[in-house]
């Protein structure tokens, strides 16, 4: 085995407090978004005002960390100005990179040539070398966040054929669909992460406790009923319980979270540049605990020490974890 290459740890921040927590816990870079529909975590009370973003970038830079701003939703007709202004503001504030998905916005940012590094969001769902090379050649994209549907072997094959860095998810909520193309949330609520920045928006979610059972409704549809003492999932259709023929259960995917810490050496060997922690919608407590655990794991790996298993299950959806598609053992 060759010596480990240095891997970047990319950490989530939904608030300025979470950003400070991530940086202090050892993040190499933090990704975050403005408090509007330009990013795919447009939740109530979350994200950064313009002033907060400018201050957060200064704070991160003063502590040796980078800030990557997610502008990874798809502008609707007539509203492109909101996304292009966000690109301009990122350049003005000195952000290190913008994470984009929309072709028009990529074109704008590339032509604007304002010194911002362009990263391709997982929302673009670029899952093969040809697609990635197109983005790199056409817009000068330097890094691609790969969809969570690839095995380690597929990631290695892609890295051999592309002239861009790759970033992969290492921990957190697991989106089982082709991101940027999933319309499940739209079916139930009329709103989607792709266009409105929120999957299963809170405005359409209702919880009710009845006889110890927790009933979750999305857009008026009952999508789950969890018995007393059982872990509760997020109120997304993909984690809902449905009847199909004689089967009743999680049709799409069990409520479970990604934890691929054990695969850090293999992902390193596969040529991955950066590991991404999901969870901009989570608290500072989550951010600090997860970032600290993964920074320790990366430092152990870089020093040639075995990676100690961290126990982050209590923080995860379903209170259980999986290595996801990296090892294809799904049903």
């Amino acid at each position: 085995m060759t010596a480990p290459r240095s891997i970047e740890l990319i950490c989530p921040a939904g608030t300025p407090a979470a950003l400070r927590g991530a940086v202090e816990a050892g993040a190499h870079a933090v990704y975050c978004g403005f408090n509007d529909e330009t990013n795919a975590r447009n939740f109530p009370g979350l994200n950064f005002s313009r002033e907060e973003m400018a201050e957060a970038i200064k704070f991160a830079h003063n502590h040796g960390a980078k800030v990557l701003v997610a502008l990874n939703t798809f502008p609707r007709a007539g509203t492109f100005w909101r996304w292009s202004k966000a690109v301009d503001d990122c350049a003005r504030f000195g952000a290190d990179a913008v994470i984009l998905a929309d072709l028009g916005l990529l074109d704008y940012a590339a032509r604007r040539d304002c010194g911002l590094r362009l990263h391709l969001s997982v929302q673009a769902a670029a899952a093969n070398a040809d697609a990635i090379n197109f983005y790199a050649r056409t817009f000068g994209v330097k890094r691609v966040v790969l969809p969570r549907v690839l095995t380690v072997q597929e990631i290695a094959a892609i890295n051999r054929e592309i002239d861009a860095e790759t970033e992969v998810f290492i921990f957190g909520g697991l989106c089982v669909m082709a991101e940027g193309r999933c319309s499940l949330s739209s079916y139930a609520t009329g709103k989607s992460p792709n266009m409105n920045g929120a999957c299963s928006p809170a405005s359409h979610v209702e919880y009710r406790e009845a006889g110890g059972h927790l009933v979750s409704r999305l857009g008026g549809f009952a999508i789950n009923r969890v018995a007393a003492g059982q872990p509760a999932p997020y109120p997304t259709l993909c984690k809902g319980v449905f009847e199909a023929g004689d089967y009743k259960g999680h049709v799409f995917e069990d409520p479970v979270s990604l934890d691929a810490a054990a695969l850090i050496p293999q992902l390193n060997e596969a040529g991955v540049t950066a590991l991404k922690i999901e969870g901009r919608q989570r608290s500072r407590a989550y951010t600090e605990a997860v970032v600290r655990s993964f920074r320790r794991a990366l430092d152990d790996h870089a020093a040639g020490r075995p990676i100690a298993a961290g126990d982050l299950r209590a923080l995860t959806e379903g209170q259980q974890t999986t290595s996801g598609a990296y090892r294809k053992t799904w049903r």
């Binding site: 927790l214 969890v226 509760a232 919608q281 608290s283 209590a314 923080l315 959806e317 379903g318």
Partner: peptide, 13 residues
């Protein structure tokens, strides 16, 4: 106080 994560408390009921 930031001692707990809200989502984790929700997951654990």
């Amino acid at each position: 106080h930031g001692a707990y994560d809200g989502d984790a408390l929700f997951f654990s009921r």
